[in-house]
Design a protein around this nucleic acid. Structure first.
Lengths: 343, 343
DNA sequence: CTGAAAGCGCTTACAG
DNA sequence: CTGAAAGCGCTTACAG
């Protein structure tokens, strides 16, 4: 392998001069700088990452801890991952992807061994076991997802409570008085998926405040269970005129369910989901939705993380808790309720 | 940070003895070994990855080069990524995820800087610009996807030609005599997506051999274009009785299209797709399909890569080219053609 | 069975 | 503006 010693020799200077010439960290005569640059170019020099990390205590790598559960809709996760990975690269960082089931073990490994300069956690739970570890790690951490205790880390998430209220108010304004809500599967809640009950709680409360009758259920994450549960819900509440979805799998399954029942949105049922526009386009979802902005959230998390890594003193600044205000993307799937019973 | 010097001091031995005690690379008295283990445990010692990499020339990280194009269906990629990442971890490796658009630049960076011990390439093109670079890299490489020139790397892929023949023969056996084939978007082919024409070529040839009339088109990757193109295809060939799909987005969109036309599979149209069972369950796809086995292919690639990394001499063994024989998962979407015209 | 020392390839005070 | 040297934290021949 070609080392900085090779460059130095080729350029006829010392290794330190070669290093400084390449980094620009001290003034070097134009001529020497050119000779070093030429040598590096010619020999195809790239600094050894391990050696540099050892010398500088910086790896230029951020850790991305994702987790995939059988009962969650994996494709939605990919967009967060890409938001993180693309932004990291833009800022000069590579991304160590960790999908290990035991997140605490993984986090301990990559922080203690100094494989990463910082960590982004996805799919954060209310009482996330990875958090105490992350707080005591020497590297800063950023979360996509709001935990019960957000101290010691930077947190970015959609404002799911505002999202719930927005869904209800939008339906209320159109004249709906009986709504259905399909949340994520109950297992997600039991694992501490706080965003599920944050949205659901807000929907329940806002429905009560607006005098709306609400039927809320946990959904499923897989066919055929998803479809069955949607059918069962529609069977059980034939007079409901609006459907709210905080469940990507249910959203993906809904078109078929509506077709099978001879229903159309918004003619027979108004529908609002909660997913990204990217998701909607990929999966052909014709429903208006609260934008979940996974790429933006991933990007914000990485930008803040890198700020903390690179800015002197930023390590001690107060931590950020930023909740994105929800936005409703209108795809024409809501309208005033029909007078008749679509049953 | 706690270093091996701290452990040595705590255990009252030299640093080299501490290192050997932890690695087990030479015999150490049971008593010393225990003292060192206790000290490491107590102080929470984890070797510094950079230092270890510098000393051993092994990073215990593999690079995963994925790429996402606007006109490809991203969720399918995720399964390959997880197959790679999970298997790597199982074998003691972490995964550096690279999603950079400029794959050659990325590959040069991570191989030259010795950030990784080996590289897995996804989404390999016929004349993939990353390949010459990978061949000349000091680290071994494994591909998921068959390029025009598979020399110098280990290659794993589905046997798309056999898959095409299997699709046609299955339909032929049932009595179908006019088939439709929807491939990936033309852009994918233009970029060198060889699997598209490998399957398509085999389908064309086998159809001819069996006396089947075939209408093959490139599909789309996004709504609403996907749906429109499926409708157009069905409009154009009302007498076709079978539909073959080598396009995940088209498969995901097909249920809605069939519903809209009042068609049912297999009553009015027999359908065979090409995607994974995981994909089918996630996206509620009721069609029989050739299993694309992304997790298995990712796993095979990593196992072989790690073999080459770790086994002495394996670096020089002849390279592997393994094409997975296609398997048809029957989900009941094919049957003998109806006598009438489903128009 | 154990220790002192060299070396991996960088960066960066220290000295001129 | 440049060079010689120390040091980052490991591993592993070399020596006993």
């Amino acid at each position: 392998m070609v080392t900085i010693g090779d460059i130095a020799r080729a350029a006829g200077v010392s290794r330190s001069t070669a290093s400084y010439a390449l980094s620009g960290k001290r003034s070097i005569s134009a001529e020497v700088r050119q000779r070093v640059a030429d040598a590096a170019q010619e020999l195809g020099y790239t600094p050894n990452a391990g050696a540099r990390a050892l010398a500088t205590s910086e790896t230029m790598v951020i850790g991305l801890l994702a987790r995939f559960h059988e009962d969650e809709f994996a494709p939605a996760m990919l967009q967060y991952m890409l938001g993180v990975s693309d932004t990291a690269r833009e800022l000069g960082y590579d991304t160590l992807l960790v999908t290990e089931a035991d997140g605490t073990r993984a986090l301990r490994r990559i922080t203690r061994s100094r494989m990463v300069d910082g960590v982004v956690l996805l799919n954060v739970a209310q009482d996330d076991a990875r958090l105490p570890l992350l707080r005591s790690a020497p590297q800063p951490g950023a979360l996509v997802g709001l935990p019960g205790d957000p101290s010691g880390v930077d947190v970015f998430d959609l404002d799911f409570e505002a999202a719930g209220r927005l869904m209800v108010d939008h339906m209320h304004r159109l004249g709906h008085r009986e709504l259905l809500l399909v949340s994520q599967p109950e297992n997600v809640v039991e694992r501490g998926g706080a965003y599920v009950w944050r949205l659901q709680g807000a929907v329940v409360q806002q429905a009560r405040a607006r005098g709306i009758e609400l039927h809320a259920v946990f959904g499923e994450s897989r066919q055929p269970a998803v479809g069955r549960s949607l059918h069962a819900l529609l069977d059980a509440h034939p007079t409901a005129t609006g459907l709210l979805l905080n469940n990507e799998a249910a959203a993906a399954a809904l078109p078929s369910v509506l077709h099978a029942r001879g229903l159309e949105a918004p003619r027979d049922l108004s529908v609002i989901g909660r997913y990204s526009d990217e998701f909607a386009r990929t999966f052909s979802l014709p429903f208006s939705s609260i934008e979940s902005a996974p790429d933006l959230l991933g990007e914000m998390a990485v930008r803040q993380l890198v700020r903390r890594i690179t800015t002197p003193g930023a390590r001690n600044e107060p931590h950020v808790l930023r909740l994105l205000q929800p936005e409703l993307i209108d795809r024409g799937s809501t309208a005033p309720p029909a007078s008749g019973n679509p049953g």
